[in-house]
Computed example of a mutant assay.
Amino acid sequence: MDNILEVKNLAVSFQTFFGEVEAVRNISFNVERGKTLAIVGESGCGKSVTANSIIQLLPKPPALYKNGEVIFNGEDLLKKSEKEMTSIRGNNISMVFQDPMTSLNPTMKVGNQIVEGVRKHKKISRDEGKKLAIEMLKTVSVPQPEKRVNQYPHEFSGGMRQRVMIAIAMASKPELLIADEPTTALDVTVQAQILDLMKKLKDEMNTSIILITHDLGVVADIADEIVVMYAGQIIEKGKLNDIYYNTKHPYTRKLLASVPKLNMDKNEELHSIEGSPPDLYMPPKGCSFYDRCDNAMVICEEHMPEFADHGNGHCSCCWLNHPQCSKNREEAL
């Protein structure tokens, strides 16, 4: 197995006036070269903090990297200086942010923004830069790229701005692309187009992808592996089919149940997960999902379960999967 990225026991906190917020709590996962890993979970579960931590985009302070390693091509990124990280960001690792309208510079033509990052790492002429910008706009299927390259972000639709963001990220042909909720503000049709585009670029450039999303329905056709996060921790991870068809954690099951289905009755209500995630100023000592779980036991409140190995890289963090669990696990799960 050729891993381009290995995250080991990563713990990230934020120092605030009220105390320390433990946003990410000792998580570990790998990204295989040329594969797509999806990190899913509710808002506030630590997905974006994890993504930004990989390339050290969190300001220090208030962010505090308490523990862990982020191994990229054999080197720990958390030990690198800001100057060293600048040579990696936008070159070896690129990122697509949630809102393209706030990420794009409204005063710069999109062509200049596409080549801006490339110019930081490579010497290219003005003509070469314009040619590259037009080529990237063609690659992400923006119509009339020769005209569009001289336009400003406000002249693009939301979907087209997201394509420009992907063009910026892919212009330097990175080895790893981190996409943080790239389809959140888009309608369903445009979402599908953006995901198809990402799949196409991954296959053509052999780029590995980390896709951050709260919607398990979005990742069904693009992810090779899935990591499910809750309250700053990984509670289940595995291959796509294992997560969808051999679900082992009650939270993952509830996330799947909340995805709308084509065969739903018109009067049927969408499933929702009752309750709220725990306050990470004072994380619970037991399972973080205890208060919202239909199968909670006394031990869940007092002790954090260890990961249970289900084979093929599939594992989950739930007492229901413990071999000495007294409940009927088949009924519970």
Rank of each mutant, 00 (worst) to 15 (best):
D242G: 13
T247C: 10
D242W: 15
T247D: 10
N263Y: 13
I212H: 03
E204H: 13
D196V: 04
I222V: 08
H249F: 15
G238K: 01
I194N: 01
A257N: 07
K202H: 12
Y251L: 07
I222L: 07
L195G: 05
L197I: 10
K254P: 05
R253N: 05
A257F: 13
E204L: 15
K239F: 15
Q233S: 12
V228M: 00
I212N: 03
E204W: 12
Y245V: 03
T252S: 11
Y230N: 01
L201G: 10
L240M: 10
D224L: 13
I222R: 13
E204G: 14
I222H: 14
H214V: 01
A220I: 04
N246S: 10
V227W: 08
G217P: 15
L195K: 04
E204C: 15
V259S: 03
K261L: 14
N206T: 12
I209G: 08
I194P: 00
S258M: 07
E204V: 14
L211D: 00
K200Q: 14
Y245F: 13
I212K: 04
Q193R: 14
L240H: 03
I226W: 04
V218L: 13
L256K: 14
V219H: 00
G232H: 04
I234Y: 08
V227T: 13
A223Y: 01
I235H: 10
V227R: 15
N246H: 11
T207L: 07
V259R: 04
A220Y: 04
M229F: 09
E225P: 14
K248A: 09
K254F: 11
H214G: 00
M198C: 12
D242R: 13
P260V: 13
L240F: 03
I243N: 02
D196F: 03
Y245N: 11
